[in-house]
Design a protein around this nucleic acid. Sequence first.
DNA 1: CTGTACTCCTGGTCGC
DNA 2: TGCGACCAGGAGTACA
Length: 297
Amino acid sequence: MPELPEVEVVRAGLESHVVGRTIEVADVRGDRVARRHEGGAAALARALTGRRLCSAERRGKFLWLPLDDGHALMTHLGMSGQMLVLPAEEPPVRHEHARLDFEDEGPTLRFADQRTFGGWSVDPLVPDPHGGDHPGGVPATATHIAPDPFETCFDAGAVAARLRTRRGPVKRAILDQGLVSGVGNIYADEALWRTGVHGERPGHSLTGPRARALLTHLQAVMGEALEQGGTSFDALYVNVNGASGYFDRRLAVYGQQGRPCPACGSTVLRSPFDGRSSHWCPTCQTRPRSAPRGVAR
DNA sequence: CTGTACTCCTGGTCGC
DNA sequence: TGCGACCAGGAGTACA
């Protein structure tokens, strides 16, 4: 499941393999992949045909390729989306929903997505409301997305302060892409563990330094993951399997239920959270005094 | 404004 | 061996 580090690997791959090239043919198969695009698949293909890809930009898990007409090809990988650079003669891969062929006859770009939570659209670029690192603007559909911890405009003090006004669980707050973007279930659990904070603690129960530490750990764990993911490329193949990859063996708690906590040796637990799972150490991360949910099994 | 429930989707796994 | 139930979960949407 691609989170910020995995999406950044994809962005860098697109930057080196498709930026600067002009689309000759856009093939969009099915309206599902284009469901965020006004007019559906046919309109999306028309909006891409003949356009040049000017750069590859990212905010959190949102990825976009500005075009030469004031719009951008906006993408989200969802749970299982892959952007693959493949030779033109390569047959469609499984779950391939869209394909770009370029005027230079070089390698093609394919979008494959097993679970179809991801998608493509062409959106107008508008000024960045967060005053961030995107002088060319951001897609109109992403203006509600907060800067991620790697952006120069990321204001850790302000985000920590907002975190401390939330009455809900702190994990839900750091998964809120409108507060801080790029964080998914894996890195949320890892950062909470590193901070020694249980995800069900209310945001407002964190001290200022603790909230700041959580943001620092978020950036650190995603930065380390990015270093591990940087090698999953080769010239013609963009590997975008965020669930695997080299960082897996570094995970302290995510998916490690039943195994010893790397810090204290206690058994790592998994418990339901928001219809999903949280992974945590019962010694390093104490639950709030009055847990809003049932005890872990 | 904050918070919560629901929805979309496919493939792998598990229990019977 | 088959089959149904369940699980993985990002983010938009509706609604309180």
